[in-house]
Design a protein around this nucleic acid. Structure first.
Lengths: 230, 230
DNA sequence: AAATCAATCTCGTAC
DNA sequence: GTACGAGGTTGATTT
């Protein structure tokens, strides 16, 4: 990885056009060809180019040179034709480092974990409900959980980490479809998430969909095979 | 901005839990407190902490020390309680740089630009239509463009850069609402985007919504006050 | 390879 | 300060 601190301006042309005025920034050039421009706040780069791309250094034209530009860096994407033109005015730091391969990030607590835990603890939804299956297939995609409703029919559960309006729309489409199946109807809907946004709660209410807030840490605490003591 | 290349492991605890095994990485510490961990590929950091957060350096406990850890860095979010524990095994580079304030990124060609251009060129939708107004207000949010339909009633236009199923759902909700207004009904729907995904096109067709592909560069070419020559 | 979907999404802006 | 929506979203998984 090469780290350069430089006064520069950057023009991007691709899916849109952008311009970064002259300022001092960190330029990262990674081993896979990635080029990224960082300011001194926030963690996202202001601009970047993803691999596969190539960087070529050019002498500035006369106009640029007279404006103080010492080099032009042209970064071109090999496939899409997206292009960056970097005007380098001054290099304040330039170092290179061998990082090697990174073993990558291990995660726990994403949506897949929530769904797995909830499938093992469907009593969180309804103490008398039983699991029919996870990822119940339909023509428009799998329903996260399908439960047998002790009061008759079934319950379709949509699991999200954060519940917004899109999730309610998605569950609504599943419910329309599932309710046409006489083996399953009537199908009740449950929207289960660690957090549900107000608009989503309102829309769910309008459509007769019940909302359930999930406590991941609590559910994880009861995950172990041992049943609760009391 | 402080740039550190170090052999380290990182544990994050917050909205989820994550672990980064021991490896050599770039650690960025920005002026606003942001801490980010980069590997040598891709532009996104493997792990990070957003401000407001504080970094404290601690001596490693005996167990860590015997494993080769020379320092513990604890990064704690001031409000959410999210926490990072960084185990530093070896520092290979450490430098600090004054970047100053960045003027920020200037963009051209985002959704707002599309909407503005289309408002000036509604003939792209229908050669005889005329603009009623942009951002036409409704109880559930503003409709991007409302046009007078020369064949009677009005046309509601939803503008997106990339059209997917969500945009069709959104326009559908607007149409339901607008069609209840006798001053506007009948309201036809138009879904306008630079690119429309197949599923969105199918859903729009089912609902009688017309799809229009927008050519941003072409529309920009006719933007200037001068009318076309032919 | 294309499409679909989650994300510690990030980041801006309007309310 | 919170909520909402766009993004050169990115990145992983599935078809």
């Amino acid at each position: 990885m090469r780290l350069i601190v430089a006064r520069c301006s950057v023009d991007y042309s691709g899916r849109l056009n952008t311009h970064l005025p002259l300022a001092t920034r960190l330029i990262m050039i990674k081993a896979d060809g990635t080029v990224a421009f960082h300011r001194d706040i926030q963690h996202a780069p202001l601009n970047w180019m993803s691999p596969p791309c190539t960087l070529t250094v050019e002498q500035p034209d006369e106009e640029s040179a007279s404006a103080g530009v010492i080099e032009h860096w042209r970064v071109t994407h090999a496939k899409t034709g997206d292009a960056l033109l970097v005007r380098i005015y001054e290099v304040l730091h330039d170092s290179a480092h061998e990082l090697g391969v990174d073993p990558g990030l291990q995660k726990d607590g994403v949506e897949a974990d929530l769904q797995r835990l909830l499938a093992e603890q469907v009593d969180v939804i309804d103490p008398r409900a039983t699991l029919v299956r996870r990822e119940f297939p339909t023509a428009i995609g799998p329903v996260d959980l399908l439960l047998r409703n002790p009061d008759g029919g079934t319950i379709a559960v949509e699991v999200k980490r954060r519940g917004d309006i899109d999730g309610v729309e998605q569950l609504t489409r599943y419910l329309e479809l599932l309710n046409r199946d006489p083996h399953l109807a009537p199908v009740a809907g449950v929207f289960a998430a660690q957090e549900i946004k107000p608009q989503a709660k309102v829309l769910a209410g309008d459509r007769g969909i019940r909302c359930v807030i999930l406590d991941y840490e609590g559910m994880k605490g009861t995950e172990s095979g041992a049943p609760r003591l009391f």
